[in-house]
Design a binder for these strands. Structure first.
Length: 487
DNA sequence: CGACTTTGACCTGCGC
DNA sequence: GCGCAGGTCAAAGTCG
């Protein structure tokens, strides 16, 4: 595999108050292996974990660099008492710092606090953008791959109609051309039957989160796609089969579910959204009732969730999310929403070999335990709907960490529709970025290695997504490009 | 009084 | 067609 995915970049994106994130960068000759991930560390109880990434060189196995990152599940799954204790400790430590009395320390404290506030604001903005970009990337990628694969049966190229252009993806094109990132379509929120409409405009007109800066980023991305990887062809109408496949993909996207298993004594895990209970049932095989909730943060928000205690271990709360929010989310809800949304998108973009595969349940009729952390994600299609389960119960702590990533034993999930284009799933945090660009990998690697700070990580991630367009337009003023999203 | 929860009835899909 | 199970509806009850 010399081209394209010779370099693979995975970003395990998780969220906590500081918005820290871990980035995993892999390539064949110089692997960084996730060597430790411990969600819900018992000592600190801060919903955070230490992620230790050890750089391994095939050539110099003994010469390893270690990079310590802080990672959080982003989920407040513990009881409110635990939260209060944590907050109290935080406040106490703040007070003790203030009481130390030195004027210089006070000044420094104020300065640092201002800086921290500024960084937090920046983090929120960047996080929101990253979430959106990732969501759209995977949604559109799934759609494109479905169409591309369909075209393999009927022709040599996949064609995607647009109002003013048509994109062609060469069947035998390298992974770069198939794995490129497009940010035009947000699947799952719209059911536009005419996929030829300018999806960017549709998205921006419909998404409350879309800003001028997002549009600018989209335009840059689109420009890059047009110039680098897509050639224009004369306008042609779309086939009805394509539309059927598209609609099937859309429908499946809506049915996709993300299940989160977490230990909690509370009746619900705190995910930042407002929910209204609309039903409760006793499901077969579980004495604990299953509660049904609707998101009430916006009128007609399609998101629903089911909450049920595990029959085997009633301390485990199973929360299953379905659908995408049609409204802006508060920062507290961004982590979970992004996680579930991205996980669902990955679920659907990964195992589906084609649009035809949507009807082929065999493709999904298996459980796949995904690598990457002790808190494993599982894809299941034995359920009525494709479901990805994020297990945060720490029941997998005995799994050797060195077998979790890219080891022969690790069942890395490969998308069947492109044998040379592996689809890696990052559970828990759920946001994943794949890219083949050496520059991007290097940039992300450098950013993380130099400063394991979320802003840097996000900047690297965003750069990985829109970086190509920057080459054409010079260095982008990051503040301008990210705008006020998330405010 | 409005928002929310509870709970029995109803609908739908699926297997036999 | 029937029964079962999952999911949803909507009227009644509860709460602040």
């Amino acid at each position: 595999m010399e081209n394209g995915f010779n370099q693979e970049m995975m970003i395990l994106n998780s969220f906590d108050d500081q918005g820290l994130s871990a980035v995993e960068v892999l390539d064949h000759g110089d692997k960084r292996v996730l060597s430790e991930m411990d969600f819900f560390a018992a000592e600190e109880r801060n919903y955070s974990s230490t992620l230790q990434i050890k750089k391994q060189s095939d050539h110099e196995p003994a010469a390893g660099k270690e990079l310590h990152l802080h990672i959080s599940t982003g989920l407040d799954v513990l009881t409110s008492d635990a939260n209060l204790m944590s907050e109290k400790r935080s406040m106490d430590s703040s007070r003790s710092a203030e009481g130390s009395g030195c004027p210089t320390s006070d000044t420094e404290f104020v300065v640092l606090k201002a800086e921290l506030d500024r960084m937090n604001t920046e983090n929120e903005r960047l996080r929101a953008i990253l979430n959106q970009i990732n969501d759209k990337y995977y949604s559109l990628k799934m759609h494109i791959m479905s169409l591309s694969n369909h075209q393999q049966n009927t022709g040599s190229s996949a064609e995607i109609k647009s109002d003013d252009r048509k994109m062609i993806i060469n069947e035998e094109g390298d992974e770069e051309s198939q794995g490129f990132e497009i940010n035009l379509k947000h699947c799952g929120q719209r059911e536009d039957k005419d996929i030829g409409k300018t999806q960017q405009q549709l998205e921006c007109s419909s998404s409350p989160l879309c800003t001028e800066e997002m549009s600018m980023a989209n335009r840059r991305l689109q420009k890059n796609i047009n110039s680098d990887q897509i050639r224009k062809v004369p306008h042609e109408p779309h086939t009805s089969k394509d539309l059927d496949q598209y609609q099937a993909a859309e429908a499946t996207m809506k049915k996709a579910r993300v299940s989160v298993r977490a230990r909690s004594e509370a009746t619900m895990i705190s995910d930042g959204c407002q929910w209204r209970k609309y039903g409760q049932k006793l499901a077969k095989g579980n004495p604990c009732p299953r509660a049904y909730y609707r998101c009430t943060m916006a009128v007609a928000c399609p998101v629903r969730k089911q909450v049920q205690r595990c029959a085997e271990d009633r301390s485990v709360l199973i929360t299953t999310y379905e659908g995408r929010h049609n409204h802006p989310l508060p920062p507290a809800a961004m982590a979970m929403a992004s996680t579930t949304s991205a996980a669902a998108t990955m679920l659907l973009s990964g195992p589906m070999p084609s649009a035809d595969g949507l009807q082929n349940s065999n493709v999904l009729a298996r459980n796949v335990q995904l690598p990457y952390s002790q808190n494993l994600a599982t894809i299941s299609a034995s359920a009525p709907f494709p479901t990805v389960t994020l297990d945060l119960t720490n029941n997998n702590a005995n799994i050797p960490t060195n077998s979790l990533l890219h080891s022969p034993q690790a069942p890395t999930f490969h998308a069947p529709f492109s044998s040379h284009q592996p689809q890696h799933f990052s559970p828990g945090a759920g946001v994943q970025v794949l890219d083949s660009s050496q520059d991007i990998v290097n940039a992300a690697t450098a950013a993380i290695a130099a400063d394991p700070n979320f802003t840097a990580a996000v900047a690297a991630a965003i750069s990985s997504i829109i970086g190509n367009s920057q080459r054409n337009e010079g260095v982008v003023d990051h503040n301008n490009s990210v705008g006020d999203v998330g405010k």
